[in-house]
Write a protein that binds this DNA or RNA. Structure first.
Length: 750
RNA sequence: UGGGGUGUGGCCAAGCGGUAAGGCACUGGUUUUUGGUACCAGUAUUCAGGGGUUCGAAUCCCUUCACCCCAUCCA
C-alpha cells in the first residue's frame, strides 16, 4: 500500500470513513471518449483506482459521453485498453453517462417543476452578453419568466426534436450576479440533432457536463468524485444540483487535484492532436509522445508508469515534473527484469591477428546482482566489431576504453591490445588491428593484465543486422508552446546496428539492456524476423558523458527573484483616529493597532473586552490573533464566546495563573463550547507550574532518555532547545511554565 | 479588475505550534568484468517577501507579491 505519508485525498477518505459519512469508498475514472489517453490520464487512473483499492472499495470506469459531436467508440476502446494495461480492474462493466440520459432528463423536469430551471431562448451571443464579466454582474433573460407549465412543455418539445439546434436551452435558475461566473444560470441542456455513437438518434437534446456529471456520480453511488483543478469553480454547481434536487444521502462530493505536467513535452489533447495531424509524429502511438500508446510502443512497462504516478504525489499546486523522474522509474523497473546483450550501434572493425578459427563463449544474460537465470552462447572469431566510441587515438584523461596504450576487455571474452590503426584517405579510422591474450578469457583469467573497462562487441560473421530507433525528447523547450519548439533531432534511425545472434534466434525477451547503452524494445509493429527493429526506451545513466560535458551543464547561476512591495491601502479618517488612540493611549504596537483599527468587528470586540478588564495589550494580542481567525469564518453573532470571557482569560494570563500556551488551549475550548475559561481551568486543573523544584526532575528524566540529542545539543545544535522544552511541556500536559522550563533546560545543558 | 486556488532546495513533495520527512537530480566515496546496479556519505540556519503574536512559528494573525483557473450551447 502507501508509504508513510498520505496525500490529502486519502486523508479526506479516511476521515469520511472514520466519521461514518461513508461506509464504502466508490470512485470513478470519467474520461470523455474524444481523444487518446496520455500519462496525465494515467495519474488520474492511479488516483481513482488506487484509492478505491486501498480502502476496499471500487472504481467505475465511466465514459462521459454527453457531446455526440466529438466522441467516438474508438476512443472508448483506447481508454479501456489503457486502464487494463496499467493493471486496474473495472469489474464487469464499463459505465456510460449516455445510459443515464432518461434519468437525467427526469431530474431536469424535477428542477423545472421546482421552478429552479427554465427554458431560455436567447441566442448564443445574447447568452454570452447577458452573462456579464468577471467584474460586472450579468442580467437574467426575459424568458426566465416563463411559467413552469410553459417550461415543461417547451422542454418536452425540445426533446421531441421540434426545434432546431440553438433555438432553446434549459438553464438552472441560480444567480446572474454570482461572483462565481459558473453560477450565472448555467446551461443544463442544449439541442443537438446529432448521431450519438451509443444512444443513436434517440435524443435531440443532450445534457451539459455540469448537469450530467454530478447526477451520474450520484446514480452510481460515488462517494468521492475526484477531478482536476480547473473544475474547482464547477464544484458550486455540482453541489447546487444535488442539494436542490434534495437527493437522499449519502451523496458524492467533489475534490480537485493538480493535473500532471512533465517538462519537454505537451499534455493537452489539442496540442497532441496538432502534432499527430501535422505529421510531426507518426501517429498516436509515436514513441516520442506522452500518450499511453506511445509509451507502450516505446517499451515502457505499465509498472514503471504506475510507479511514477505513485512517486510524484498528489497535491493542489500546479507543477511540472522533471522527465528524469519518469526515466528513473523505467530504468529501475527494467534493471531487475531484462536480459543483458551485446549490440554495437556504430561498428568499428577489429581484426585479432593472433586468433584463428572460432569458438562460442557461454555467458549469462543477467549480471551478478540480478537474481535471474539464463544464458546463451556468444560466437567469437578473428573479425569482430566494437563501438566506434570505444577506441580513441588521443584519449582525454580518465578514458577507460581501448587506446594505443591501453588494453580493454571484450565483455565476457578476452583482453585485446591495439597494434595498429588503419585509416581511409580522409584520415577516418576504419579498422583496428589487435592481438588478444589467450590466458585472459573471462572467468578463467590468468593473464594478470589489468584493464579499466569491458566493452561490447559482436562477431563479424555471426552478428545480425538490426534497425535501431533512438528517441530523444520531442521538444527542445522545457515548457513548449507548440510546433515551433520541436527538437529536430528527436528521432535518429540506425539501419545497420549489429547484435549478437541469440537475441534474434532465441528471442529470450522483448525488452533488453544493450550493455553500456540502454534499454531497448522489439518494436511490436515493425519488427520482423527478416528486419528486426528495436526502439530505445531509455539510456543508461552515463557518468562518463556527464563528465565530458560537465562544462555545459554545470553553471546555472539563477538570479534571485526581485520582490516588489505593493502599496498598502490607506486608512480612512475613523480608522486613523482609532489607530492613534491604540498606539498612543493604549501603547499597542503599530501592527496590532493597524489590524484592529481596520476591522470594525475586531475593534468593537476589543473595546467591549477592554471595558471589562484594563489590560489593553494582552487583550489586543488575543483579539488580533485568535478572535480574528474565528471571525474569518463566521459572524460576531455566531461566536460561542463573549468579550467578557476573553477578558477573563487574559486576566488569568496577566496574573500568571496560566501560561500563554494554556490560554491557547482554553481558547480552542471556548470556541467549541462557549464555556467559561475560569471554570475550565478549575475543572481540568490547568494552573501553571512555575516552581523549578517541580519541573527539574522532569527535565532530568528527559535528558537521561535522550543522550543522542543531548550530545547534538552540546555539539552546537541549539535548535534542539525547542525539542527539550517541548518534551517537558508535553510531560506536564502543557502546564509547566515554559519560561521556567526554558531557562532550566538551557542551564542544565550548558 | 470580481471570485476561486496555489507558493517548502534544481524538480516533485511531507509537515498543520516543539530536531525542515522521502523520492528524482546533483557531488563525493565503496563494491563491480556494464563509466550500469547496489551501498555509504554530502547537499534548505530556512519554508514567496515584510511585519506581528509566542519561551518557541513553515505552521496562528496582518500585509504585500507571484503564478494558475473562471465570462464554450466543451469536458
Amino acid at each position: 500500500m502507501m508509504s508513510e505519508s498520505k496525500d490529502f485525498l486519502r486523508t479526506i477518505v479516511e476521515e469520511d470513513l472514520k466519521s461514518g459519512k461513508n461506509r464504502e469508498i466508490i470512485t470513478r475514472f470519467p474520461p470523455e471518449p474524444n481523444g487518446f489517453p496520455h500519462i496525465g490520464h494515467a495519474k488520474s487512473i492511479c488516483i481513482n483506482f488506487g484509492i478505491a483499492s486501498d480502502y476496499q472499495g471500487h472504481c467505475n470506469l465511466r465514459m462521459d459521453d454527453t457531446n455526440p459531436t466529438k466522441e467516438d467508440t474508438k476512443y472508448v476502446e483506447a481508454l479501456k485498453d489503457a486502464v487494463q494495461w496499467l493493471g486496474f480492474d473495472w469489474g464487469n462493466k464499463v459505465y456510460f453517462t449516455s445510459d443515464y440520459f432518461p434519468k437525467i432528463y427526469d431530474y431536469a423536469k424535477e428542477l423545472i417543476k421546482m421552478d429552479k430551471a427554465y427554458v431560455d431562448s436567447l441566442t448564443e451571443e445574447e447568452i454570452r452578453e447577458y452573462r456579464g464579466t468577471v467584474t460586472e454582474s450579468g442580467k437574467r433573460s426575459k424568458y426566465a419568466k416563463r411559467t413552469i407549465q410553459e417550461n415543461l412543455d417547451l422542454f418536452e418539445r425540445m426533446k421531441k426534436g421540434e426545434f432546431k439546434d440553438g433555438e432553446h436551452v434549459l438553464r438552472a435558475r441560480i444567480d446572474m450576479s454570482a461572483a462565481n461566473m459558473k453560477m450565472r444560470d448555467p446551461l443544463l441542456y442544449r439541442i443537438r440533432h446529432a448521431h450519438h455513437f451509443r444512444a443513436g438518434d434517440e435524443w435531440s437534446i443532450y445534457p451539459m457536463y455540469d448537469f450530467a456529471h454530478c447526477l451520474s456520480d450520484y446514480i452510481e453511488g460515488i462517494s468521492h468524485s475526484i477531478c482536476t483543478l480547473e473544475f474547482e469553480n464547477n464544484r458550486d454547481i455540482y453541489n447546487w444540483v444535488l442539494d436542490t434536487l434534495g437527493l437522499e444521502l449519502p451523496r458524492p462530493y467533489q475534490y480537485e487535484f493538480a493535473r500532471l505536467n512533465i517538462n519537454y513535452t505537451v499534455m493537452s489533447k489539442r496540442k497532441l492532436l496538432e502534432l499527430v495531424n501535422s505529421g510531426q509524429v507518426s501517429g498516436w502511438d509515436d514513441p516520442r509522445l506522452p500518450t499511453l500508446a506511445g509509451y507502450r510502443r516505446r517499451g515502457y512497462t505499465p509498472e514503471s508508469i504506475v510507479n511514477f504516478c505513485d512517486q510524484i504525489g498528489i497535491a493542489k499546486a500546479n507543477s511540472m515534473v522533471d522527465v528524469s523522474q519518469l526515466e528513473f522509474c523505467i530504468r529501475d523497473d527494467l534493471n531487475k527484469k531484462v536480459p543483458r546483450v551485446l549490440c554495437v550501434l556504430d561498428p568499428l572493425k577489429v581484426t585479432i591477428e593472433n586468433y584463428e578459427g572460432s569458438e562460442e563463449i557461454d555467458a549469462s544474460y543477467y549480471p551478478h546482482d540480478v537474481p535471474k537465470e539464463g544464458n546463451r552462447a556468444i560466437p567469437f572469431s578473428r573479425e569482430i566489431y566494437i563501438e566506434s566510441d570505444d577506441f580513441m587515438e588521443n584519449p582525454p584523461k580518465g578514458y577507460y576504453r581501448l587506446t594505443l596504450e591501453q588494453p580493454v576487455r571484450l565483455r565476457h571474452g578476452y583482453i585485446i591490445t591495439c597494434k595498429e590503426v588503419i585509416k581511409d584517405a580522409d584520415g577516418n579510422i576504419i579498422e583496428i588491428k589487435a592481438t588478444y591474450n589467450p590466458e585472459s578469457k573471462s572467468g578463467s583469467d590468468s593473464s594478470g593484465i589489468k584493464v579499466k573497462s569491458a566493452i561490447q562487441w559482436v562477431s563479424a560473421a555471426a552478428a545480425k543486422t538490426i534497425e535501431v530507433r533512438l528517441y530523444d525528447r520531442l521538444f527542445k523547450d522545457e515548457a513548449p508552446e507548440g510546433i515551433e519548439d520541436i527538437n529536430p533531432d528527436s528521432l535518429q534511425v540506425i539501419k545497420n546496428a549489429l547484435i549478437e545472434p541469440a537475441v534474434i534466434t532465441e528471442k529470450p525477451d522483448e525488452r533488453f539492456q544493450f550493455e553500456r547503452q540502454g534499454y531497448f524494445y522489439a518494436d511490436p509493429i515493425d519488427y520482423t524476423d527478416e528486419k528486426p527493429v528495436f526502439n530505445k526506451i531509455v539510456g543508461l545513466k552515463d557518468s562518463w558523458a556527464k563528465k565530458t560535458k560537465a562544462t555545459e551543464n554545470a553553471p546555472k547561476v539563477q538570479a534571485k527573484k526581485v520582490h516588489i512591495d505593493g502599496e498598502v491601502t490607506a486608512m480612512n479618517e475613523a480608522q486613523k483616529v482609532l489607530f492613534d488612540k491604540y498606539t498612543g493611549e493604549f501603547g499597542l504596537n503599530s501592527e496590532v493597532a493597524n489590524t484592529l483599527a481596520r476591522d470594525e468587528d475586531l475593534s468593537s470586540f476589543y473595546e467591549a473586552s477592554l471595558s471589562v478588564l484594563n489590560s489593553p495589550v494582552g487583550l489586543a494580542n488575543i483579539v488580533t490573533n485568535e478572535v480574528a481567525r474565528e471571525l474569518k469564518q463566521m459572524q460576531v453573532s455566531e461566536l460561542k464566546f463573549t468579550a467578557k470571557q476573553i477578558a477573563e482569560l487574559v486576566k488569568m494570563v496577566d496574573d500568571e495563573t496560566i501560561s500563554n500556551k494554556i490560554a491557547k488551549q482554553l481558547f480552542e475550548e471556548m470556541v467549541k463550547t462557549g464555556e467559561n475559561p475560569t471554570q475550565i481551568v478549575e475543572e481540568k486543573g490547568l494552573v501553571q507550574i512555575s516552581d523549578p523544584a517541580k519541573i527539574e526532575p522532569i527535565i532530568d528524566e528527559i535528558i537521561a532518555k535522550n543522550p543522542d540529542n543531548v550530545a547534538k545539543f552540546k555539539a552546537g545544535n541549539t535548535k534542539l532547545l525547542g525539542f527539550f522544552v517541548g518534551q517537558a511541556l508535553k510531560a506536564t500536559g502543557g502546564k509547566a511554565n515554559p519560561k521556567v522550563v526554558n531557562s532550566l533546560v538551557a542551564d542544565k545543558l550548558k
